[in-house]
Every structure is written in C-alpha cells, then in structure tokens.
Design a binder for these strands. Structure first.
Lengths: 100, 100
DNA sequence: ATTTTATTTCGTAAAATTACGAACAAATAT
DNA sequence: ATATTTGTTCGTAATTTTACGAAATAAAAT
C-alpha cells in the first residue's frame, strides 16, 4: 500500500492563495500593523510608508480579496481590520504546513 | 514614548520573499513532497503533476532562488532536497508572524 | 452651497509570472 | 559512435503584478 501525496488540493490552493497575499513586504507590514492595533485607517498606514496612496489602496484590495482583512466604512474614512475567521484558517494551514 | 512599528525591515522582506515562493499550489505541493521523502528527482514530481516539465523546472528554480530547496547533480538526474538552513529560517519567521 | 478630507478607481506603463513546446546539454547505455 | 535518458534553457505569448498621478466619490465641515 502506497500513500500518494495529494496534489493540487483545495488545501494547497488555499495555502498558496494566502501565501501569495503575503508575498509583498508592504502587505506583511500592513498585517502586522493591524495585529498590533486591531484596526486602523488607510491614512494611518499611508503616513508610514513611502508609497503612493493609490498603490497602498491596491495592496489593501489584494489583502481583502485574499480574505485576510476587511474594511468598514466610517466616512469619510475606512476602518480596516483583520478578518479573524479567515486569518484563523490561514494560521491553521500555515501551522500544519510548517510542522512538516 | 511611542513604539513605531518597524517598516520594510529585512525581516519583513525575507518573510515576504518566502511567502511569495509559496504563492503557487505547485510549489506548495513540491515542498510538501520533499518534506515527506527528504529528497526526490524532478522526474518523480513531473509524473504526478499535469504540467509541462519545463514549467515544473521553472517552479523548482523559483524555490531554489528563494533558498527553500537545493539541487545536487546525480547525473543524468538532479536530486532536489529542502534547504534545511533556510527552511528553518522561514519556519521561524512564519511562526513569529503567525503568533501575532 | 461649497470646500475639505479620506480614500478609491481609472488610465497607463514597466516588469514579473505562468505556461508551453522545441532545442540543447551531459552522462549513460547500446 | 550513437541513441537514450533526464532536465534545463530558450523563445514566445498571455496574464498578472506593481507603481504612479489624475480624476472621481462621498461624507463632513464651513
């Protein structure tokens, strides 16, 4: 009996998706910032980083599309927070993966 | 006294670099395979995956460039193994990051 | 009503990623 | 010597990523 390693599973695709979202220093920075202060505004982040606001906005969109963060409108600003449910999933997937 | 979160540090860049390398299902698969059997040949991997050999070769190159794997020539084949030193570093970086 | 504030979306451009098959290299087997 | 085996590199193409500034949006302040 041989155990064939699963290929291209949903699990692997999810892990890769989260990893991809973390594949840029700015996005790593943003997630770490959000973890430190639970939530924050786009402008707070923008002040610290030497990139255009529109560029930051794109990075935030990618984190959102990957499901790692979410934004609530608190006009005229937007409050970004970690998406706890998906973050927990990502943590689990990475933990399992790193154990290997 | 306020503690400003470090921005664009070497640590964040390293983490992002490793994450980026894991940002594709095939590369996640390869790393898991290598962890299961310590080492293996490109052909062994190729057999399992529905992608062209040249494409797999590119993915292997990216994992190698990111430092996560290494290849020893064992002509006419190449034996790929996990780069333990860098893998340990990646594990540590991710672990710290996930703790947040 | 108009201006200000905070942030996104649009338009654009350069660079990187992903994928394939064909051509190439290098050692082994015939 | 030549063919076979194992992988890589090359050439090419489509798509995605990254980045910027300008224009747009939408609520709040004046």
């Amino acid at each position: 009996m041989s155990f064939k390693l699963e290929i291209e599973t949903v699990r692997q695709q999810k892990l890769a998706r989260y990893a991809k979202a973390l594949g840029h220093p700015v996005r790593v920075y943003v997630l770490e910032l959000l973890s430190k202060q639970s939530c924050c505004y786009s402008g707070d982040i923008s002040q610290e980083l030497p990139i255009a606001k529109s560029t930051l906005s794109q990075h935030l969109k990618e984190l959102k599309d990957a499901g790692l963060i979410q934004g609530e409108i608190e006009a005229p600003r937007i409050k970004y927070c970690i998406n706890k449910e998906n973050w927990a999933e990502a943590q689990l997937l990475f933990k399992e993966f790193l154990k290997m």
